[in-house]
Every structure is written in C-alpha cells, then in structure tokens.
C-alpha cells in the first residue's frame, strides 16, 4: 500500500522553484529518510503533504486523497517540525492535552513516560524551555500521537546525543509494536542509518535518489591504493569521489564489488556509509563536472 503519492509536483515562490517535477511514492508502514541539504525542498514537500502548503502544479495524494483541508486525511497525519510554534501561555501539559484531543490514536501513558525520560516537567511553561527541551516536546507529540503517517522535520535541534538516542530507541521500539509510516527528515544521516528502510534524497527541488536503504548500503565502495592499481579497478565503474595524494589514490565507486584478492596489489576496500553516499551523490549532481586525465567524467573535487 502506498501512503503518499506525488506526481509531477511543482512549487514556485515567485521566481524561485522550490520543487521541480517531484515524483514520489512512499510505502505504508515503512521508515523513510528524507535527506538533502538546507533549502533542498524537504520541508516544502512535507508542508504540501500535510495541507499546510500548496503545490503550484501536479498531483498529491495522501492515503488516496488530497490532504488540503481534508480532516479524513489530517486526522491520520502528524507533522512535527523543528519550527513548531506554541502559544506563549502554554505549559508542556497544555500542548500535550491539545495533542491528546486531536490525535485519535493518542497514548497518554506513553506521553507521560516520555516526558519523564526526556526530563521534562508538565508544569513547565513552554516559553521558558531550552531549545533542546522544546524539541523534546515535539518528539513526544510525534511519538505518542501514533499517527499512521508521521513526519519528523529535523526534530532533534538542541537535543544532546543521549536524548537523540532515546528518541531513536523509542521510535524504533514503538514502530515495532505499532507499525506506521514515518518520514524522518534529518542531516544526521549516520545516526539514523540503521533506522531508515527507504531513502529519498532531494536536491534543489529534484529527487536525486529514491531507493531502499538495503540496496544503497551495498551500492558504493571506497578503494584506496597505488594510483595505477586503483585506476585499473575503477575502470568501468561510476566514480562518485576521488582524492589523490602522492602516488596514492582513493576513489568512491558506485556498483563495484570489493575484490579481496586485490589486497596483494595493495588495494584497500572500505564500505561507504549512507551519509558518505548521500554526500557524494549530492556533490556529483550539483558541482560542475570536468573531464579528468583519464577522459572520464568525475566530480570537480
């Protein structure tokens, strides 16, 4: 089943094209990672999918219906954004009780235990919270709402490493018991790479990568060794990145299988992390290309 479908979606703000012909399908009951640089269009996509923003052109479907002003869709959608605003007079408990009234699947006990785990107090005025505590309130609402489609848009701002790990742990545990569609927009790709089942990379309003994480994990490999041997191995593969130091070469290749027999020729193989793969792919797509001395196309840097 498909939870989200976007076809030919375009979003323009005046002259600026924020989304350019976006085609996207998100499988139900899957954890999706929506990755990309600042200003790539991640938040714009989530705003449109939650009826908070409007597409300029294209088709948008969430659970088969258009989300705009549609309670049948929005009842099942929770969107936690980094910049979520709370009224000045609200205490933590007011925000949680409002969420409890609005989300049909709200689990108050779960929310209470999360409040304790994140070291919040329900009587605290939200205005007085630190940046990290404010993020924790959003994380708690996002988890306890158990919405069939939950968006987390960089929910970790100001959260320390322990609190972030707590978020990932609780998300994974609760997801296992209550499967749902989760979209995680983040820059801390390494931290969530074990969590993400499907990866969507967006850059300058275009979808750059749309693959299952398992496929991506084996997709690229970094080879280091004497320049000649590395070049021989790299031939015929797409080069994502190249660093040269003296007679040594280090290249990141797509679609190459590590060949351990080549160790004798001084070649070292390393797996490429999801974060590295995303970074290199984005660089390759955006930076000006030049021909290198082999006559093959590589990224400029």
């Amino acid at each position: 089943m498909t939870a989200v479908r976007m076809r030919g979606v375009v979003k323009r703000y005046g002259d600026f094209t924020a989304l350019d012909d976006v085609n996207l399908e998100l499988r139900e009951n899957t954890v999706h990672g929506l990755l990309g640089r600042n200003g790539a269009g991640k938040t714009t996509i989530m705003q449109i999918l939650t009826g908070q923003g409007f597409e300029t052109a294209g088709e948008v479907e969430v659970f088969g219906l258009h989300p705009y002003e549609n309670p049948a869709v929005l009842d099942r959608v929770c969107f936690i954004r980094e910049a979520q605003k709370y009224p000045d007079a609200f205490r933590v408990r007011d925000a949680l009780s409002a969420a409890g009234m609005l989300y049909p699947n709200w689990d108050a006990d779960f929310a209470t235990s999360l409040v304790e785990e994140f070291h919040l107090r329900t009587r605290q005025p939200i205005k007085k919270l630190s940046r990290g505590q404010l993020s924790a309130v959003g994380v708690i609402i996002g988890l306890a709402s158990r919405a069939p489609l939950t968006f987390f848009d960089e929910p970790y701002l100001g959260l320390d490493a322990v609190a972030r790990q707590l978020f990932y742990d609780r998300l994974l545990a609760d997801y296992a018991v209550h499967p749902r569609t989760i979209v995680l927009s983040t820059h801390l790709i390494d931290e969530v790479s074990d969590l993400i089942e499907h990866v969507v990379v967006i850059d300058k309003g275009r979808i750059l990568m749309d693959e299952d994480a398992d496929v991506l994990r084996g997709r690229a490999v970094t080879v280091t060794g004497p320049a000649a041997a590395v070049k021989a191995f790299a031939a015929g593969h797409t080069e994502l990145h190249r660093e040269e130091l003296g007679g040594f070469l280090r290249v990141t290749l797509e679609g190459a299988d590590p060949d351990t027999r080549l160790r004798s020729e001084g070649l070292e193989f390393e797996p490429v992390s999801l974060q590295q793969l995303v970074v290199r792919t984005t660089q390759l797509a955006t930076e000006p290309r030049r021909e290198n001395h082999d006559g093959r196309e590589v990224a400029a840097r």
Binding site: D94, S97, A98, M101, P104, H178, P179
Partner: peptide, 29 residues
C-alpha cells in the same frame, strides 16, 4: 489505542466533530 491503518467509519465519530471544540479548549489555556 492499537487500531491503526484505514478506518473510514471511525472518521465520522465524535472525534472529528470534537476538533473545533479542541481549538476552543486551546483558547481556554
């Protein structure tokens, strides 16, 4: 609440009619 996924019949429950009241309740804070 363990029930997830599509439940169209549940969408017309008082839960949905409660939404404007929930907004009014926000004002009470």
């Amino acid at each position: 609440t363990a029930a997830l996924g599509p439940a169209p019949s549940a969408l017309d429950t008082p839960g949905r009619r409660r939404r404007p009241l929930a907004v009014a309740r926000m004002q009470l804070v």
